[in-house]
């Protein structure tokens, strides 16, 4: 299955998987208008380990939300996997996220009433994958993150690191075009964080999925292929490894 994903993406390496053009996002908090993102334009290449870095309040999470299609820009264009997401209805946007975007949250955000297996299986149900294929893909992914033996446990029976592994498996099981991770190591101790980073790096290499992080964790940043530095809602610098 990983090989299939690889061949799917090989033909589109030149096209950026994420393209933002003069994107702004303004919030209104009471009478105060907050400009969280100010005219950002960027292109993120596929199959890369990309970091949005910056201090707290810089706008990197807002930018990540816009890329993940869970928030709409005030102005500008957001194109994900070749799709101008502004043209999609709320329902179509939900379907788009279900197929193309995976999320890894800082607080894991697993569904507490489902087992590890069911949490990983859940995104496949949303895309109508048949039961045998769901089972095969879910077990394969749980094995990949080293949690096959814990598949029947619920989130409250798992450690923080295990929960984040389940979250990684959930994000990757549907073979999305992009995986977005907002501070994925913030709630983990450094040792567990390091192992989760190593896992994500390995999974990214195997699946050739585009990983986009918002983080100020130096340990995580050191693994980045590309970095965009955000400050006061704008991009103030970027680096691209070879």
């Amino acid at each position: 299955m990983l090989e299939a994903s690889k061949s799917r993406q090989d033909g589109a390496l030149d096209e950026p998987v994420v393209k933002l053009d003069r994107v702004t996002k303004t919030y209104r908090i009471g009478a105060v208008e907050v400009r969280a993102v100010r005219g950002v334009s960027l292109a993120i290449a596929p199959q890369r380990f990309t970091m949005l870095i910056g201090p707290s309040g810089s706008g990197k999470t807002t930018l990540l939300n816009l890329i993940g299609c869970i928030d709409a820009p005030t102005s500008g264009m957001v194109r994900i996997a070749g799709q101008d997401v502004a043209k999609l209805s709320d329902t179509a946007l939900s379907d788009f996220r279900a197929r193309h975007v995976g999320f890894i949250f800082q607080s894991f955000s697993l569904i507490p009433v489902l087992t590890a297996y069911e949490n990983v299986e859940y995104p496949l149900l949303l895309t109508g994958v048949s039961a045998p294929k769901r089972r095969e893909a879910t077990l394969e992914m749980l094995e990949a993150v080293g949690l096959k033996d814990q598949r029947r446990q619920r989130p409250n029976e798992l450690s923080g690191g295990q929960k984040q592994r389940v979250a990684i498996a959930r994000a990757l099981v549907k073979r999305p075009d992009i995986v977005l991770a907002d501070e994925p190591t913030a709630n983990l101790d450094s040792e567990t964080g390091a192992s989760v980073i190593a896992l994500m790096r390995r999974m990214q290499a195997e699946s050739r999925t585009t990983f986009i992080f918002a983080s100020h964790d130096s340990q995580l940043i050191s693994h980045a292929d590309d970095t965009f530095t955000i400050r006061d809602g704008g991009i103030v610098g970027q680096e691209h490894a070879a």
């Binding site: 993940g68 975007v101 999320f103």
Partner: peptide
């Protein structure tokens, strides 16, 4: 939080 998560994963409002 769970509602936000499932919506982010692709569950529709109707869902």
């Amino acid at each position: 939080d769970e509602i936000g998560t499932t919506r982010a994963l692709g569950v529709r409002r109707a869902g």
